[in-house]
Computed example of a mutant assay.
Amino acid sequence: MKNQKRLYLSFAFAAMTLAAGRAVAQGCVAAHSNQRPMSQLVKTDEGGSSGGWSIHNLTVDIGYRVFNSNKYFQGSKEIPRPNAVENHQNIFDIGVEYRLSPRWSLLADVPVYNGTRNQIYPPVGIYQVSGLGDITLGAQSWLFRPPTENGGNVAVSASLKLPTGINNATGSALYKGNVIKATADQSMQPGDGGWGFVLGTVGYKSLWQGSDLYGQGQYLFNPENTSNVPTFRSQPGQSVMSVTDQYLFRAGLSQGVPKLRGLAVSLGIRGEGVPVRDLLGDSDGFRRPGFILSLDPGLMYDFRGTVLSVNGPWALYRNRPPSVPEIQNHTTNGDAFFADYTVIASLSHHF
């Protein structure tokens, strides 16, 4: 009973951390947060789960996200436009987890980015960018030694973000009648150019037969102010790119499908974006702060230790608030293009 009370308090703390929060905002907002699959939600036998606390120590996740943004927003208002920027992004992620013990694991994530953008305002052009993103290295610990008797647990993680991704990619563009090499939009850059760190949490709790409550979230702290990468923007204070914080949270219910061992469906909410002001350091330079809240349906299927996870977040609310330079200089509130939905898929295998 004492351990169960402690679990509920820990899960409540994790949920509050998620709600307070910050991988991929669907559009021009440059959030590239990764989403690790929660294999503990997949029941492979009576009372068991695919997460299985076996002697196998290594797990590899191959993730993929794709979306196409063409809905124009100022603030929370969508404004119809006959000509829209189309920002098409593909983000791959290779995640590795190595268990040191049932509670402790080492984590590594290697993102790879590919995207195109048909920019309709100067410098006009079609930009295509591909490259390695910012790698993160860290550790995770479950608060309780798994498997727990009460069917739930909470984990916390901390990772260092390395500035391995290119953050000054360019494209051929037309500017004042001349073809030039111009810096691609901030949302197209695989990296942000700064050192940072990520704090995360994940938790689940069994409710009834085959059903679980889950929560997941992370916040990327980027203490550096700007990257000194030019933006070709003439607005005051926006000539170089800002190095931004990012956040992601999701929570909901998962239900195992009766008589279909290894299959679970889920429904929840997902929020992600870039804040107006970083929690640490200054927030000068050009950034598109923004937030998107989505309905997050998904399914997971375990086949002999390989877990397929698919989510299709559909946007419910989108907002592009003014950035720090826009507030300081009383300029017109900036804009952003968002997508209606994204597709997130991953394959996870326990070796």
Score class of each variant (00 low, 15 high):
267 L>H: 00
234 S>E: 13
108 A>C: 14
16 M>C: 14
200 G>M: 02
100 L>I: 14
82 P>I: 04
53 W>G: 01
169 A>T: 08
54 S>D: 12
181 K>M: 11
50 S>Y: 05
264 A>W: 02
214 Y>H: 04
138 G>P: 06
284 D>Q: 13
93 D>G: 12
220 L>N: 09
20 A>S: 15
128 Q>L: 00
99 R>Y: 03
65 R>G: 05
317 Y>N: 04
204 Y>R: 06
227 S>E: 00
82 P>C: 00
239 S>K: 12
348 S>L: 05
65 R>V: 13
193 G>E: 06
235 Q>P: 00
22 R>G: 06
181 K>F: 09
59 T>E: 09
96 V>W: 08
272 E>C: 00
106 L>G: 09
56 H>A: 02
252 G>R: 02
5 K>D: 10
329 N>H: 14
186 Q>M: 08
28 C>Q: 14
273 G>M: 07
172 S>A: 12
53 W>T: 02
109 D>S: 12
185 D>T: 05
152 G>I: 06
278 D>N: 15
192 D>N: 15
169 A>Y: 01
33 S>I: 07
143 L>H: 04
278 D>W: 00
132 L>D: 05
145 R>G: 00
170 T>V: 13
27 G>L: 09
81 R>T: 08
210 G>K: 10
186 Q>G: 10
78 E>T: 07
60 V>T: 10
2 K>N: 13
303 F>N: 07
173 A>P: 03
176 K>E: 12
121 Y>G: 02
163 P>C: 05
82 P>R: 10
267 L>P: 00
202 V>P: 01
206 S>C: 09
88 H>P: 00
258 P>L: 04
191 G>Q: 11
21 G>F: 14
316 L>P: 10
350 H>D: 05
154 V>F: 03
70 N>W: 04
243 V>H: 00
203 G>W: 03
243 V>P: 01
238 Q>T: 07
96 V>M: 13
298 G>L: 02
2 K>S: 11
32 H>L: 10
105 S>V: 00
290 G>L: 05
301 Y>P: 03
164 T>M: 11
343 V>F: 10
342 T>W: 01
16 M>D: 06
200 G>H: 02
133 G>M: 01
335 D>H: 14
34 N>R: 08
